[in-house]
């Protein structure tokens, strides 16, 4: 079990490109669900990939309980860190069970093959993600909501302590968006470290234990939802066209609003 994930002085630039991440420092503790927010192109997905060890850092380290991740082989890394990617191909010839079995790759002996414990992990992670009804179907037959739950189920089947989730709610309807965030919150409360890249500030506000705000490759704020869902913090990142408020039960929310708000006539 991993208690702490630390990104320390993370710097990264794509080959022959400008620097995308500038000295990012971020700490995550067991049981936390941190939403990484920021405008398009702020480097959120790149930071997620950097923390996942999928890009080679120019400087800095990602540490799991003090162990640098870059020293680990892909297989060792996958035992601790699971990624829920934003995009996957349609995978029209892959069955749901086989897809979720992919999450067990690092745990399955090449010469033995999947054991009953692996089959049980597939079942239980599909059940945990309310995706049992997807069994036996091809990935391409699933609806957007089902597919997203199956992709999360694969990461759950990986039994990694750290879950890195890239924009899990794009193309999902509001109800399914809530379902996914509920699931992620539950996974965090069970003792995982969950980092979610998202544009859904209001869902992030409801479900996260903390927010991290990235702007132009720099981490500009990290703190509680109440402290960060404020005009002073977010308008410097997202601009002025935001309306802030609180729901009946006191949860902060923000909606986009045109500068000269036009009310419908009549």
């Amino acid at each position: 079990m991993v208690n702490q994930l630390v990104a320390r002085d993370v710097c990264f630039a794509y080959a022959n490109g400008p620097r995308v991440l500038h000295d990012v420092n971020l700490e995550l503790a067991r049981g936390e669900l941190v939403s990484l927010v920021g405008p398009n192109g702020s480097g959120k997905s790149t930071l997620l990939r950097a923390i996942a060890g999928l890009v080679e850092l120019d400087r800095g380290d990602v540490l799991l309980d003090g162990r640098p991740l870059r020293a680990a082989s892909p297989r060792e890394r996958a035992l601790d860190v699971a990624v829920v990617p934003q995009f996957l191909p349609s995978l029209f010839d892959v069955r749901v069970e086989d897809f979720v079995l992919g999450g067990r790759y690092a745990r399955i002996d090449r010469w033995v093959g999947p054991k009953s414990s692996d089959r049980e992990a597939i079942e239980s992670s599909l059940a945990a993600c309310d995706a049992i009804e997807c069994r036996g179907r091809a990935m391409s037959e699933l609806s957007g909501g089902q597919r997203q739950r199956v992709v999360v189920a694969r990461a759950v089947a990986q039994e990694a302590a750290v879950l890195l989730v890239d924009e899990p709610t794009t193309s999902l309807d509001p109800d399914h968006q809530v379902t996914i965030f509920e699931l992620l919150a539950r996974l965090a409360s069970e003792g995982r470290i969950v980092l979610v890249v998202t544009h859904e500030l209001n869902l992030a506000a409801q479900f996260s234990t903390a927010l991290a705000v990235l702007h132009e490759g720099r981490l500009v704020a990290r703190g509680s939802v109440d402290a960060l869902m404020r005009r002073e913090v977010l308008s410097s990142v997202y601009g002025e066209r935001l309306h802030f408020g609180r729901t009946d039960d006191g949860c902060p929310f923000v909606v986009p609003r045109a500068r000269l708000a036009r009310r419908p006539q009549g």
Binding site: R49, A52, L54, P74, R75, E76, R77, A78, L79, V81, A82, V83, P85, L88, P89, L91, D93, V94, G102, G103, Y105, A106, Q158
Partner: peptide, 11 residues
């Protein structure tokens, strides 16, 4: 089949 980065993330 899911892409190189996805495969790498799986180990």
């Amino acid at each position: 089949k899911g892409g190189e980065e996805d495969a790498e993330a799986l180990g």
